[in-house]
Design a protein around this nucleic acid. Structure first.
Lengths: 156, 156
DNA sequence: ATGAAAGCTCAAGTCAGGTAGAGGTCAAGC
DNA sequence: GCTTGACCTCTACCTGACTTGAGCTTTCAT
């Protein structure tokens, strides 16, 4: 149990459910780091299983890999992160969840008003202004969506 | 007010805040339909402003264009959709919002447990099983995320 | 000592949801 | 009738998050 602390990429993949190719991709993006054997193969720390788990959870909450990298950067340097470290960093996610819920509740309320009149008037409803959060959720090419919709004319 | 019922693509763009290129893209995807002038220019119905507005709102809730197309397909054929039609179709979105909120609340609760122990153990937490909704939110290449994470081993 | 399984790099492809630009046409007001 | 701005098609490109494949090497159990 002293040298098995290092695991191969395949095992990390199996333990986290992430594809091997994805782990290499994460490494390229700086989300995880690997030691190398003399032969050039990657060897990860057991602690990296938690790290990858965190990536998955954060992704589900809509963080981009870049944002996740920023969060992970706050883990202690040099030392292997422990339970308390993960607790601290995960607490940030909770705040994000709260924000998302609030935005959705706002959207729901506005939609209810809209359902009442069937208008779908962007101006009246303000359906677009419910938290930038709501707009940003969902990766992909939606960068603009939040900004765009602020002052849109009324429905003809 | 009888022939101005038809609007050019630029006006539809201006009224909805969507780029002209995006409207053409939506047409290509079958989300909107256009009549054509003899010269080949697109002419939209005023009612299409509502249609595009619906697309925007649904997008914010995380529906893909394909899903939105499916929703829109339920609008009355032949007849121009009226307020009641939009009310009916928008009500579907409300259900979706409720589901998203529930999934987030579940995730939050599980995360709270996790924060308690700092484990990030996917098996123990079940953080991934909180509503397939939560997993699918966020378009882009995440198709797999929901399926993948079901039976993942415990953290070493 | 060897052979299969797992790993390596690097370039290219995929998918969603678009944008940008080239090169040419239409419509409307003067 | 002409000009100018809006419109047309088509191809190519963009981002994010990966996957796929080719061609080659390392590791490990026997």
């Amino acid at each position: 149990m002293h040298r098995t602390d290092l695991i191969a990429i395949g095992e990390l993949a199996a333990r986290t459910g992430v594809a091997v190719s994805a782990i290499r991709f994460y490494e390229a993006k700086g989300l995880v780091e690997a030691l190398r054997t003399r032969g050039g193969q990657r060897r990860f720390l057991r602690a990296d299983i938690r790290r990858v788990s965190f990536i998955l959870i954060a992704q589900q909450l809509g963080l981009s890999l870049e944002e996740i990298a920023a969060e992970l950067a706050r883990l202690p340097a040099g030392r292997t992160p422990n339970g308390a470290d993960w607790t601290r960093i995960s607490t940030g996610l909770r705040v994000r969840i709260d924000g998302q819920i609030a935005a959705l509740e706002c959207t729901r309320e506005l939609l209810d008003n809209c359902i009442g009149c069937g208008c779908l008037s962007l101006k009246k409803c303000g359906l677009y202004n419910c938290g930038d959060k709501a707009a940003q959720r969902g990766a992909g090419p939606r960068y603009v969506l939040g900004d765009r919709a602020a002052e849109i004319a009324e429905v003809g």
